[in-house]
Design a binder for these strands. Structure first.
Length: 446
DNA sequence: AGGTCCTTAAACATAG
DNA sequence: ACTATGTTTAAGGACC
């Protein structure tokens, strides 16, 4: 494809001067161990690992959401559709964007968010009760929580879409028929990569709760006493579903919804606690089931990350980590983690190509002239992919069989995983507390 | 210096 | 026809 002519001027120093996201909170900073590989090649995570993961996630989600629940933020949020619908506070037009740091969400809500788009999208999706959002609602969430974007050039929406499309962490799920009003699909977090996103958030230097993250509360009480994150009852999707995911076995998801709305967040009723081991087993079982299904069921999404080498994200590794990553010899890095780079392409293929198009013909792609090594690589791979299919991309996508209950179940499993994590964490906290009390008693006795 | 990550812009296709 | 959504390519800056 001929390079699109672009006004050189429009791009000059763009990233450095306009981008609110320049390399802050980069997913590339993710430690290698933070990359879960839910494939056959990696051993089943030990309960302790899971525990740690869950703990992190719990704090993380809570903290990150908490940071956006700031009333100051709310009060300056633009008047959104959601607010209008629900009598949300009418908002004054936000002050003009100020030049950045110190990053202070609380006192300068209009400052540039230090989060990457990946993180923003992640937070938006995670903040929704059903853990999936249409693009429009992602926009809304971002606008709602980061007034900066109300005055930002509209390009950010493009970036959001670009991220959704390109980033492995995000998965498109078709709306079921009852919900298929309006365009587009719902976007959710690819379970395997949620961890990465959490880590990325954690790495954000300006994270308002960095201290909290550094010193997580040691007790359930302390944990629960933390300030309250915003729920998002105004989400149209949430409203549609009455706050509960529909189309899935009621007990499972309704319990899940209960956990989300009452357990992680304030005023939450505790759930029955189950041993971590059994939970892990259950989670693994669910995971395995999903994986099995997605591998064996040709109507389902192609398996994601079934090959460790393909199990990469838009942003799961920087130079260092990628070298750690490369266990498979010299070629491993060449399938880099950059957007559009080889592995990302693999991921694109994973996500977008139907199984019948899974055999792109390498020869079909003529080698590109070497301008940029990386771009050349990417372009070549992209051509491989495209050439392997006879259908236009969109057609290939839409040729997918209609979303089945299987897909719903997969999603439910994803929610379950998340919730299981929450539960395990609480379980752990409670156990620790109980254990500590018992030990204290014993000590006193002696 | 080169590689990588991320953002931004733009072109294009498709769906509603 | 128009707009929103989704995909892809390209380029530049920051960072390591």
């Amino acid at each position: 494809m001929p390079p699109s002519k672009k006004p050189e001027v429009s791009r000059v120093s763009m990233a450095s001067e306009q981008s609110p996201f320049a390399q802050v909170g980069s997913l590339s900073e993710l430690p290698q161990e933070a990359m879960p590989k839910a494939d056959a090649a990696s051993p089943t995570p030990r309960p302790e690992d899971e525990e740690l993961t869950n703990l992190n996630w719990l704090h993380e989600s809570r903290n990150l959401l908490t940071s956006f629940g700031d009333p100051v933020l709310r009060s300056v949020s633009p008047v959104l559709e959601l607010d209008r619908d629900h009598g949300g506070p009418p908002s004054p037009s936000p002050p003009p964007a100020t030049s950045d740091p110190p990053y202070d969400l609380k006192h300068n809500p209009n400052c540039k968010p230090p989060y990457s788009f990946s993180c923003l999208i992640f937070m938006a999706i995670e903040d929704s009760p059903s853990k999936r959002l249409p693009v429009k609602d992602i926009y809304n969430w971002i606008l709602h929580h980061f007034p900066y974007f109300t005055n930002a050039p509209t390009g950010w929406k493009n970036s959001v879409r670009h991220n959704l499309s390109l980033n492995k962490c995000f998965k498109k799920v078709d709306k079921d028929r009852s919900q298929s009003v309006g365009k587009g699909s719902l976007w959710c977090i690819e379970g395997e990569y949620r961890h990465n996103l959490i880590q990325a958030l954690k790495k954000t230097p300006f994270h308002p709760h960095a201290q909290v993250l550094a010193t997580p509360p040691v007790s359930l009480q302390a944990f629960q006493s933390m300030s309250s994150p915003p729920l998002w009852p105004v989400s149209p999707f949430f409203r549609r579903n009455g706050g509960v995911l529909l189309q899935v076995p009621q007990g499972v998801i309704q319990n899940g919804a209960r956990i989300l709305s009452q357990e992680v967040f304030p005023g939450i009723r505790p759930l029955p606690i189950i041993p971590i081991g059994s939970r892990s087993a259950a989670v693994r079982s669910v995971l395995a089931g999903c994986r099995r299904r997605s591998e064996s069921d040709p109507s389902g999404d192609p398996p994601l990350g079934s090959d460790p080498k393909e199990d990469h994200t838009y942003s799961t590794g920087n130079g260092q980590s990628s070298s750690l990553h490369s266990s498979g010899g010299g070629a491993s890095r060449e399938a880099g983690d950059v957007p559009g780079d080889g592995e990302d392409d693999d991921r694109c293929r994973d996500r977008r190509e139907p199984r019948d198009a899974a055999a792109p013909t390498p020869d079909a792609a003529p080698p590109q002239a070497q301008q940029h090594k990386r771009r050349q690589h990417w372009t070549t791979k992209a051509k491989l992919r495209v050439s392997g299919d006879s259908l236009p991309l969109k057609k290939r996508r839409t040729q997918k069989p209609p979303e089945s209950d299987d897909e719903e179940m997969k999603e439910a499993a994803g929610s379950l995983l998340h919730l299981a994590g929450v539960r395990a964490c609480l379980n752990n906290i409670t156990n620790r507390t109980a254990k500590g009390q018992k030990e204290q008693k014993d000590t006193l006795k002696n």
